[in-house]
Design a protein around this nucleic acid. Sequence first.
DNA 1: AGTACCACCTGACGGC
DNA 2: TGCCGTCAGGTGGTAC
Length: 260
Amino acid sequence: MPELPDVEVFRKYLDSTSLHQKIQSVQVKNKKVLKHVSPQKLEEELTGRKLQFTTRHGKLMFSHLDDQCWLLFHFGMTGYLKYFKHTEEDSVHDRVVLNFANGYHLAFICQRMLGEVDLVKDREKYIKERGWGPDALEVSYKAFVELFRGRRGSIKSALMNQKIIAGIGNIYSDEILFQSRVYPQTEVKQMDEQGIKKLFQELKKVLNKAVEFQVNPDKFPDSYLLPRRGRDGLCPRCNNQLQRLKITGRTAYFCPHCQT
DNA sequence: AGTACCACCTGACGGC
DNA sequence: TGCCGTCAGGTGGTAC
């Protein structure tokens, strides 16, 4: 379930469980999640080392080993982390497992294997080479305005485009657009200054709240679209039936009455 | 610059 | 019960 808020929760989870512990061994259970590093190389680089701290950029997570090396996690559609003691707590979908000297394990679990584990030398350079825009929770209002200036296409596509702004996916773009009362297929160039400002404010609010609630939909306010997203969902504001629309290959849910 | 379409993958669900 | 199409919170390549 990984968009920015999910990854931020994973980051805190890793930091609260797995830092400063000696990695005794590494098991690569399925090497399909290693796109640019061999299992041997990964094991070699990690064994005997410790994770020092963790940062996030959009949906990418970097755990610091030393000045020359970061462990990268990208969670795809179905990835998450699990820290556990007993092997029977592990998931059948574990793909990479770090075994710590204290007897605990940290597993990268990823059912569909669209996620990725990698080693990165230079974090900033990596983000730049991948072409990712600024992190959605870091970007200033001024920079945000510039990101969208002169763009064509729909506002939802732009929000989901990691090369423009990093961290927002299908679910949270729907929520941000709902809170901003913007119809998802609105052309970027049709948005006026007020509209962009509202979008910026709601974007920050929605992402921060989601992190605060640990992405648990049960804790989200009643005014949120997210828990009602899906078949037969009703708008939390006007109680009309939500509608769906395909935008850049993804299903957008929205309220035709509230979002214009 | 955008978008449509396919590919990478697994699994759940509904219809027949 | 089984088979089949469709869908799922991501991203990259390629062709228009």
